[in-house]
């Protein structure tokens, strides 16, 4: 298998690796970098659990080639908290009990990060529509919606 050189930033860390051309981004993150916060489930891009941000935009890492992150920035769930402090979105998920088994949570949090960056004060309809590609099999959608809306308020209060 022909390896391809990749220079990238993952959660702010410079990484230069030789990557098999066929490797998916989620395999790279989990197996090469040990970042196992990103989960894999459907491998069809219909569940959203493997969502990571590439250049701040959410993509399904199960169907994205690792070689395609060359020259780009990747953010995973491990890069959301900073200085040992949870991101307001993560804290809102805890406060609203927006997780049960927790398997889908990394994907939902990454989508919330991307949404609130694009639309800082979304309507409930905008949140629901943005999260249309993410599935919670414990079906805790209402508390996830509440958490995202509350996180938007928290972020607004926190910004000068």
């Amino acid at each position: 298998m022909n390896p391809v050189g990749v220079v990238t930033q993952v959660n702010g860390r410079e990484i230069a690796r030789s990557v098999p051309a066929r490797m998916t981004l989620v395999e790279f993150l989990r197996d090469e970098l040990g970042l196992t916060g990103t989960k894999v489930s459907c491998e069809l891009q219909v569940c959203g659990v493997c969502t990571v941000l590439v250049d701040r935009k959410p993509v399904s890492s199960c169907a994205f080639l690792a070689v395609d992150i060359d020259g780009r920035e990747v953010t995973t769930i491990e890069g959301v908290a900073s200085d040992g402090k949870l991101h307001p979105i993560q804290q809102a998920f805890i406060d609203h009990f927006a997780l049960q088994c927790g398997f889908c949570t990394p994907g939902f949090v990454m989508m919330a990060v991307a949404l609130l960056e694009e639309v800082p004060q979304p309507t409930p309809e905008q949140v629901v529509s943005y999260l249309e590609g993410n599935i919670c099999r414990c079906t805790g959608y209402r508390s996830i919606l509440e958490a995202v809306l509350d996180a938007a308020d928290r972020l607004e209060r926190a910004s000068p």
């Binding site: 051309a21 066929r22 998916t24 491998e43 069809l44 891009q45 169907a63 994205f64 080639l65 395609d68």
Partner: peptide, 26 residues
Amino acid sequence: PLAGGTDLMVGVNAGQRPDNVVALRR
């Protein structure tokens, strides 16, 4: 040809191994 991967990668993940692929995103 493999563009965004939203069709072809689904097949690859399902175990299909096309002999010869060219990735185009770059």
